[in-house]
Write a protein that binds this DNA or RNA. Structure first.
Length: 423
RNA sequence: GGAGAAAUGGCAGAGUGGUCGAAUGCGGCAGUCUUGAAAACUGUUGAGGGUCACACCUCCGGGGGUUCGAAUCCCUCUUUCUCCGCCA
């Protein structure tokens, strides 16, 4: 959520920046300022009415104490009118505030200056690539065929017990999953992230805090009976740990990592691109989350990008990094780098990580602040990234590491797996 | 799930209708003292709105109500604790 003061200060810059998202921000921002003006005006009137009423009440109290009941009763009548006025004003205020709030919820974050303009993923900007695409055997298979051939992932069984998009991992497949989770967590811990375990269900307030609500309402599984949401990413519970907190500057940087399953309804997805592990309703992910001082957040973002690079280097997977264009940028993000691994057997890039700086956008919703050197509350910056999303890393490994008689295991994972080949 | 008790500032803990944004203690910060630190002493110390700055307004778990006036009374929801039941 954007800050009103920032909108007032930089309205024109914001409008220009929002065109990168193909959004005409002018009417939205102007409406927000207008509503805020109305809010202030109403608040001032209400405050005055209440002040008057408070003063009278005090007077009445004193009159009663000194036995002047009659005078008191005269004043009582006055307060009756004030009460009616304040009721009207406070109703107006509530309406205006709600209107303003829901308007602000509709305005996405302002893209960072480096974000390229554009509509679709075609317009994303490749900023880095590394690793060599392996020469595969002539009869190379896509991962869903490999999964069947070596009996390590069973999609049909998942359909039987739950539905499409809920695979069952078996034997060495299951073990490889566990190995990846442990490996990622270890790498993150080494890099200074504190490992935590968080609930996989969150309440509505958390959904609003990180911005999945109301924007992505239909994408989350919702448990109506208890009004809880299955998390689509660990970002929600981890970032919301800091909802409503006021930090001390010396607490920065805050770095957390968590493994969780992620649940996504993926309404509207279909076709070959969602085959196999490419798009699932339930998948595993290891996430990194940071809470930073505003002056350090972009430095932190670069650090996170380097960190993810290191992991992919160790896994020896060919990958590239994209800077997302305005049209592809998430609602709450100011700058996002996507990591894509090249899946040789499918001959396409698969997104495996997304690393973003939300600046103060989430913090403003979360009311996540810190005290600056003057003792004033300021909004902190939040960031997060996947390190990494399991299914597509698994797809990349299966496809790129396949040989004539099986699938080799990346060297760094062998100690975690306890085997060096799936056959 | 049943019965009872409770929810107050960073923490502990007073406060049962007006003088309470809230005693006191601890903690935090600043200062005096000290070579330095500790101790002691002095001052200061919740959040939000609003203002050039004051004033002023709101907030004592959330929501609603009674009253001229609510931390205090009533209703409701949530959470926590104790006892019973169930249970990985």
């Amino acid at each position: 959520m954007l800050q009103l003061q920032a909108i007032r200060d930089s309205k024109n810059d914001f409008i220009t920046a929002l065109t990168k998202r193909n959004i005409d921000g002018a009417p939205l921002l102007e409406k927000a300022i207008e509503l805020d003006d109305k809010r202030r005006e109403t608040q001032t009137k209400l405050d005055k009415t209440l002040a008057e009423s408070n003063a009278l009440s005090k007077e009445i109290g004193m009159l009663f104490k000194s036995g002047k009941a009659q005078e008191a009763n005269v004043l009582k009548e006055k307060t009756g009118i004030l009460k009616e006025d304040s009721k009207v004003l406070s109703d107006t205020l509530t309406t205006v505030e709600e209107e303003l709030q829901s308007l602000l919820y509709q305005i996405p974050n302002i893209p960072h200056s480096s974000v390229p303009a554009g509509n679709t993923d075609e317009d994303n900007e490749e900023v880095f690539s590394e690793g060599t695409v392996p020469e595969l055997v002539s009869n190379a298979l896509p991962h869903w065929e490999l999964a069947k051939k070596y009996d390590i992932i069973d999609f049909e069984l998942g359909v039987k017990i739950t539905g499409a998009g809920f695979p069952v991992y078996k034997g060495k497949g299951a073990r490889l999953q566990r190995a990846l989770i442990a490996y990622f967590l270890d790498k993150n811990t080494e890099a200074g992230y504190t490992e935590i375990q968080v609930p996989h269900l969150v309440n509505e307030a958390s959904g609003y805090g990180t911005g999945q609500l109301p924007d992505k309402e239909g994408q989350m599984y919702h448990i109506g009976e208890d009004d809880l949401y299955l998390i689509p990413t660990a970002e929600i519970p981890v970032t919301n740990l800091f909802r409503g907190e006021i930090l001390k500057e010396q607490q920065f940087p805050i770095c957390y990592t968590a493994y969780t399953p992620c649940f996504r309804r993926e309404a509207g997805s279909y076709g070959a691109h969602v085959r196999g592990l490419n798009r699932l309703h339930q998948f595993d992910k290891v996430e990194i989350v940071r809470v930073e001082h505003p002056s350090k957040s972009f430095e932190a973002l670069d650090g996170m990008v380097e960190h993810v690079k290191n992991i992919l280097r160790e896994l020896k997977l060919p990958y590239r990094i994209l800077r997302l264009c305005g049209g592809d940028l998430g609602f709450t993000s100011a700058l996002t780098y996507d990591f894509e691994v090249f899946s040789t057997a499918q001959d396409r890039w698969l997104e495996i990580s997304s690393v973003s700086n939300f600046e103060a956008y989430q913090s403003n919703r979360l009311k996540l602040r810190y005290k600056d050197e003057n003792g004033k509350s300021q909004l902190a910056h939040t960031l997060n990234g996947s390190s990494l999303a399991l299914p597509r890393v698994l797809a990349g490994i299966l496809e790129n590491y396949q040989v004539e008689d099986g699938i080799e295991i990346p060297e760094v994972l062998v100690p975690y797996c306890g085997f060096s080949k799936i056959d």
